[in-house]
């Protein structure tokens, strides 16, 4: 690993100034579980690390006006075990519970994980399915980017120079809705998935038809993807098993997997179809208030 200077700003303004002063030579560090690996491999060799750990207020969780606001410095374990989030957004805890191992979840932060831009991570599909957005803050203001537009390429995101992910906003799902996250892990429990999929389904009030649906997948392209064709095929219709099967087939046109040691591109394409179907079926099964 190269030598670097470690900065511990105590305010966001101080962090913005450091990022501006050191430009491309600076990297933001949160939990460090992703960045430090790259630094050890010498993929990234920053001269300055700007730690967000000493900035107060970035690790709070609050639910208000139908939205959960989760500070970017919350650890994954914090989100996994938050009683407040478990009550209103059970899918979040269920998803973060599956990330790597407990040691990683105790260090890794939700903002750091998203900024890392790894297409194989577990949380993005669930967060995209839930309609989450990230808040990006910089010296010149704030902007909010929906997560399905946030990932731009392999390990690349829409974070501009000088911006810091400060919050994750997740809208609370409607009462007649259910969600699920599943992944295929043929190797070890803490490995990245070969394919992962998440779905959130909401039914029409008092009906059985699908009012809204979001399906997203991980490890099937250079970014996490939202399966809009699959969504379009089921939205407004009754979610029968044959419709779900038919709609899930459409995911094959939406994925573009990379060959790697977890599976060939062709294999992952087929698994994407299977996992999109299973995620939708599980989301429907998780709807708590299905009318008779």
């Amino acid at each position: 690993m190269n030598t670097f200077e470690f900065h511990t700003p105590t305010t966001l303004d101080e962090a913005y100034r450091l990022l501006e002063a050191h430009g491309d030579d600076a990297n933001i560090i949160a939990g460090g579980t992703g960045l430090v690996l790259f630094m050890k491999q010498r993929m990234v060799q920053p001269g300055h690390l700007v730690s967000l750990r000493s900035i107060p207020g970035l690790d709070s969780i609050r639910v208000e006006d139908g939205t959960a606001h989760i500070g970017a410095m919350c650890t994954m374990h914090q989100v996994e075990t938050s009683p407040q989030l478990r009550e209103v957004l059970p899918l979040l805890g269920e998803t973060y519970r599956h990330v790597a191992s407990v040691k990683i979840r105790n260090m890794a932060t939700i903002g750091g994980g998203l900024s890392h831009g790894d297409p194989n991570q577990d949380p993005p599909p669930s967060l995209i399915a839930l309609g989450a957005s990230v808040v990006l803050s910089s010296g010149s203001g704030q902007r909010t980017v929906p997560l399905d537009e946030f990932f731009t390429d392999y390990f690349e995101t829409d974070i501009h120079d000088g911006e810091i992910v400060t919050e994750l906003e997740v809208p609370l799902p409607s009462p007649s809705s259910g969600g699920a996250f599943i992944k295929f892990l043929p190797r070890t429990a803490d490995d990245y998935a070969t394919v992962s999929a998440a779905a959130v389904v909401a039914l029409e009030d008092g009906g059985r038809n699908c009012r809204d649906v979001r399906v997203a997948l991980g490890s099937v392209a250079t970014t996490p993807i939202r399966a809009r064709k699959v969504e379009g095929a089921v939205r407004g219709r009754e979610l029968t098993s044959s419709l779900i099967r038919e709609a899930s087939d459409l995911v094959q046109d939406e994925v573009d997997p990379l060959d790697d040691f977890r599976g060939s591109s062709g294999y992952k394409r087929q698994m994407a179809q299977v996992f999109a179907r299973r995620a939708l079926e599980a989301a429907v099964a998780n709807i708590s208030a299905v009318p008779a």
């Binding site: 491999q41 993929m43 390429d153 392999y154 990379l258 591109s265």
Partner: peptide, 17 residues
């Protein structure tokens, strides 16, 4: 070097873009 370590599938996609 570091580019090569990323592997061919990624390089191919990047070259295409």
């Amino acid at each position: 070097g570091k580019l090569g370590e990323l592997g061919q599938p990624i390089i191919r996609k990047k070259a295409d873009s």
